[in-house]
């Protein structure tokens, strides 16, 4: 489980307002406005942001600062957005990509 760090001995108290609600893969979640989508999802215990296009294996954040593109999701219809860099807004619709067809690979498996 993950949770928010509401009170920090050096950094002080966390301001959790204003709250927003957004959809991820069809389910509603609550976040703090303008925090990255990845942080809002992690605070809700969601680690898997997408499935690898070829293998279907689960993927989440890796670098958390925009370099690795592991956290790419579709935001309000725009593909390839980095969940670690994109501020969450009220009513946002976020979807994680899934496994794609790989007809050439599959053909080879059966005919190669």
């Amino acid at each position: 489980m993950t949770e928010r760090i509401l009170d920090h001995s050096v950094l002080g108290k966390l301001d959790t307002s204003p709250k927003v609600s957004f959809l991820f893969n069809g389910k509603e979640y609550e976040g703090i406005e303008n925090e990255p989508i990845a942080a809002a999802l992690l605070a809700n215990g969601v680690r898997t942001l997408r499935r690898h296009e070829e293998s279907g294996s689960p993927r989440g954040i890796y670098c958390n600062i925009g370099h690795c593109f592991e956290c790419r999701v579709t935001v309000d219809g725009v593909q390839g957005m980095r969940a670690c860099l994109t501020p969450v807004k009220d009513g946002m619709v976020v979807t994680g990509g899934g496994q794609l067809d790989a007809p050439v690979r599959d053909w080879r498996k059966n005919n190669g």
């Binding site: 993950t2 605070a43 989440g60 890796y62 670098c63």
Partner: peptide
């Protein structure tokens, strides 16, 4: 590549900047 594996800097930013464990 499992979700939950991250760079140490990612954990730092999540913890100190976004305040999510």
């Amino acid at each position: 590549t499992l979700p939950g594996v991250m760079s140490v800097g990612a954990a730092q930013v999540m913890t100190n900047v976004h305040r999510v464990k």
